[in-house]
Every structure is written in structure tokens, then in C-alpha cells.
Computed example of a mutant assay.
Amino acid sequence: MPTIRVMTVDDHRVVRAGLAAMLAGAPDIALVGEAADGREAVERYAALRPDVVLMDLRMPHMGGVAAIRAIRQDDPAARIIALTMYDGDVDIHRALTAGASGYLAKDVPVDELASAIRAVAAGRRAIPPAVARALAEYAPRVDLTDREVEVLRLVAKGLSNSEVASVLGLAAGTAKVHLQHIFQKLDTEDRTEAVTVALQRGYLHLDD
């Protein structure tokens, strides 16, 4: 059986070390490289051309979705699994739309991770049933803009409209207008509900 060459991408050294340890027990899988952010991942992919990439989604300099898109633009045959601790339906949809062949949680058992790598290397998709259900229930929505996400992130930290405007350098009433648009797009009625829905859908994360 030919060896499957894998590259890991994560901004946490301990996560990369953990993945290396997990894969060490699979005789048909070899770790050939790693990267600490999306920008480095694109460069390392071009140099190594691994069979499968395990890609975190939230990293500095260039996020995982942008890195997936860049790698696939350079090599349409690239096979990438989004491996992340987040499971918001927006995260899943963006990763798969960008070209990922699979989506797994970081706490996945080692045998499931190895099976996913083998499946993706063989040209199949690796999407657990729970993720498939989330995708089936995903309804196209009007996406939040980057500015709206910035506003909502500050609202989640407890800032008032005037404080949000001050932090972002906006006119006093502009933050309120952004918030009204957010309520409409998320179909929510107040700040607390908007933050809750944004967390569920993957626009915001608990460590933001």
C-alpha cells in the first residue's frame, strides 16, 4: 500500500505535535511537513505537494479558509481536510465551499482521523454524519459583512453602541445602523440573541 503523505497546518505547536503522535501509529501515513499559519501553508504546500493537508481554520496572517482557497487555486486536485475545534455551520459551509474535501473536529479519535485521511487521499469526501446533517439543514442566508462581524464581536464583549463606534472609528449612529442590519440578517430582536445566534452559526467564537 503506497504511503499517504500528510502536511499539518495549525498555529499551536502542541496541536501539531499531537497530530504527529496520532499519525505515527498508522503505517500507511507519513507526516512530511507542517505549517504554523495559512500563509506558510500555501508556501509549504507548493514545495512539498503532500497527498492530504490537515488544515486548521482560525490562524493568524491567513486563515484556513483563505489558505484552502489559495492552495486549490494553485492545485485544483489538492485534497484538504478542515480540522478544527469549531462546528458552526458557517465555518463548515465556508471550508467546504473553498474546496475542502472533509471537515473533522480536533477531538476526533485517531482511527477516525486515519480513516478520513485514507478516504480523502482516495478521492472521497470525509464528512461525519453530524456535519452532514448540519449541511443539510444549512439554509443560504444573507452573510454578515466583515464590518458587521467586527461590530458584533465588540457587542459580545459588552460595549455600548457609542463605545463600538469609538473603537472602530465610526460616526455615532453608524454602529446602531450596523446592529440593526445584523438583527435583520440573523432574524433576531436584541443584542443577546444576535450574539447567541452568531456563536451558533460560526460568525463568532468563544475566544474572540
Results as ranks from 00 to 15, higher is better:
T84E: 01
H178A: 05
D91H: 14
A130T: 10
V131W: 09
A132C: 11
R69N: 13
V65D: 09
A82Y: 04
E40A: 14
P76L: 07
A41N: 08
S162W: 07
A95I: 13
A35Y: 01
D146Q: 13
R118V: 13
Y45N: 10
V110R: 12
T145H: 04
D51R: 12
G63Q: 11
A41T: 10
A35M: 11
S166H: 11
A130Q: 13
M55L: 09
P109N: 01
E148F: 00
A82S: 10
V131A: 09
M85D: 10
A132W: 07
E43L: 15
V120D: 06
I80V: 13
R124T: 05
G173Y: 11
A116W: 02
A78R: 09
V53F: 12
P109W: 04
T174I: 01
P60I: 05
S166N: 14
K157V: 03
R125S: 13
R44V: 10
G88H: 01
G63Y: 02
A78W: 11
D87L: 14
D87W: 00
I117F: 12
A175V: 06
R58C: 07
S166R: 15
A132Q: 14
E137C: 05
I81F: 11
A46F: 08
P140N: 03
L57E: 04
L135F: 08
V142D: 07
A139D: 06
E150V: 07
V65K: 00
P76T: 02
G99P: 05
P50E: 12
D56H: 00
V108F: 10
H178T: 00
I92Y: 04
A119S: 14
A130S: 14
L113H: 01
A156W: 03
V42A: 12
S101R: 15
A119P: 02
I92D: 04
I80N: 02
A47C: 03
A165I: 01
A41L: 09
D75I: 03
S162D: 09
A95D: 05
K157E: 11
A121W: 01
G64W: 03
A172H: 12
D91L: 03
Y86G: 07
A122Q: 06
Y138P: 03
L54R: 04
A121D: 09
Y138Q: 09
Q73I: 00
A78S: 05
R133Q: 15
V110C: 13
L48H: 09
R94S: 04
A121Q: 05
P60F: 12
V151N: 03
Y86L: 15
D146I: 09
